[in-house]
Design a protein around this nucleic acid. Structure first.
Length: 447
RNA sequence: GCGGGUGUAGCUUAGCCCGGUUCAAAGCGCCUCCCUGUCACGGAGGAGAUCGUGGGUUCAAAUCCCAUCGCCCGCGCCA
């Protein structure tokens, strides 16, 4: 007999079917026992006699045969997608036993460390699963949107040589007899590929060895990167980014109502167009509103990001806002300076509900200028010789952006911590388990 | 790295401020029994905690003090 999915049961009323899955819950009434069986499609109530399910406990994996039945009207459960039907079991095979979970999976109320310590188990919880269904949807729509715009997907290398774009800390890797690093960004490769495919994107893990212990940092995160050539203006980049973000949002809104509802949230609002403000303008507004004077700072503080998002919401009805023209010295060497004032760059961040979720900008495509900048940033041209070939042999005006996937999901679902939006988050103290459990902590080197 | 907070049964927490009838309580989970219509079923009973660790103050410490470790949050750095 062929197994059917739980959600298909309704189509088989009056017929014998076979389903399989995990025991989500057991309600024992003495003479009759109810099991909620869970498979990838949903939950189904199974009715069984006590002898059939004698030893069965939560999370046991079962294969159940029986008759799919219409529930009597009074016993319909409107909360359940399959609430109209139930399965009258007559044969149950235990495919796997399960130990009693140390936490309550049905009503998951645990602290973040416990949630992550038991990740293989807690991921089975309905609400936790919903986070990753949303994430999958976002990734898949990112891909679709860009493909529709003529972008080519590529796979970025993760092991990179000594070259860095500066800024973020790198994880070193022992590479045969040499030192190498885990990529902090596919930046240089996506630019090289603009010289090949004009428009490219990649969905790739990146690694940051920042000692950041915050609710918005991960040591390994998923970067949704896009880069495009032959732009007329850097505004094209924001337009593309805005379009992709809007399509991701509306896709999730269309397909994930159930998941959004579990978190009591709705998709971030955008009123027609995402407002665009220069960093200095944003700082002036923040100063006017709060008397907090960060007008000389090169970036927005977390508190400023929240404040300017408040402003965007009040003034433009938008929960997103582009901040543009970051100071040249704050951005990487390849960032295109504003011809009107080279102290600032044609770069942008996209903030959503108080957090930066995208960063992007136009890049310098002229070989000589790029070379000059590498020296100016006190980097070694020799380290960038490989990358520079792309420009030496002709590169159109270009630029791009990168979305932090976990941050995007965090902001959509109003999660408290970005770690919740990562299946297996890595941070300063955790790779799957708390690192201290391995007792292999390196001694701090004396300086 | 800096600052703040926190650590009590498997999980979530109360008790800590004003030490002593709480040397420990509750909900969930667990075990036993009862229950044929529940859907996070219900009912009765039970097991389970050297109150993170070490030291100190005191007649007396979960409670006060010091140290130490873990964890969380904020900042820094960064995306």
């Amino acid at each position: 007999m062929q197994r059917i999915l739980i959600t298909e049961t309704a189509k088989y009323v009056g017929k014998r079917v076979k389903v399989a899955g995990w025991v989500n819950s057991r309600r024992d009434h003495g003479g009759i026992v109810f099991l909620d069986l869970r498979d990838r499609s949903g939950l189904l109530q199974v009715v069984a006699t006590p002898d059939l399910v004698k030893d069965v406990k939560e999370e046991y994996v079962l294969e159940i045969e029986g008759e799919a039945q219409q529930r009597p009207i009074k016993m319909v459960n409107p909360e359940l997608a399959t609430g109209q039907v139930e399965l009258k079991a007559d044969k149950i095979e235990i495919l796997a036993k399960a130990e009693t979970p140390s936490i309550d999976l049905k009503d998951l109320k645990v602290s973040l460390p416990v949630l992550l310590d038991y990740r293989p188990l807690t991921l089975r919880n309905k609400k936790i699963r919903a986070i990753f269904q949303i994430e999958e949807e976002a990734i898949s729509q990112f891909r679709e949107s860009l493909k529709n715009l003529g972008f080519t997907e590529f796979q970025a290398p993760v092991i990179v040589p000594t070259v860095t774009e500066g800024g973020a800390e790198l994880f070193p890797v022992k590479y045969y007899e040499y030192d190498a690093y885990l990529a902090q960004s596919p930046q240089l490769y996506k630019q090289i590929l603009v010289g090949v495919f004009e428009r490219v994107f990649t969905i790739t893990k990146v690694f940051r060895a920042e000692p950041s212990v915050t609710t918005r940092h991960l040591s390994e995160y998923l970067s949704l990167d896009a880069e495009m050539g032959f732009i007329d203006s850097w505004q094209d980049l924001m337009d593309t980014c805005e379009r992709v973000i809007k399509e991701i949002f509306s896709d999730i809104e269309n397909k994930c109502q159930k998941e959004l509802k579990m978190f009591g949230v709705s998709i971030p609002k955008i009123n027609q167009k995402i407002p665009r403000l220069k960093l200095r303008e944003a700082q002036e507004i923040i100063f006017q509103r709060t008397k907090r004077d960060n007008r000389k700072e090169n970036d927005l503080e977390p508190e400023d990001e929240k404040e300017i998002c408040e402003y965007a919401k009040e003034k433009y009805g938008s929960e997103l806002i582009f901040i543009t023209h970051f100071p040249t010295k704050k951005r990487p060497f390849y960032t295109f300076p504003d011809p009107e004032n080279p102290d600032y760059t044609l770069s942008f961040d996209l903030l959503c509900r108080g957090l930066e979720i995208v960063t992007g900008g136009q890049r310098i495509h002229d070989y000589e200028t790029l070379l000059k900048n590498i020296k100016k940033w006190q980097l070694k041209p020799a380290d960038f010789k490989f990358y520079l070939q792309a420009f030496k042999y002709g590169m159109p005006p270009e630029g791009g952006f990168a979305i932090g996937a976990e941050r995007l999901v965090k902001q959509i679902l109003n999660l408290e911590n970005v770690r919740e939006a990562s299946l297996f988050p890595r941070d300063t103290i955790r790779i799957d388990q708390r690192l201290i459990a391995f007792k292999t902590k390196r001694k701090k080197s004396k300086k």
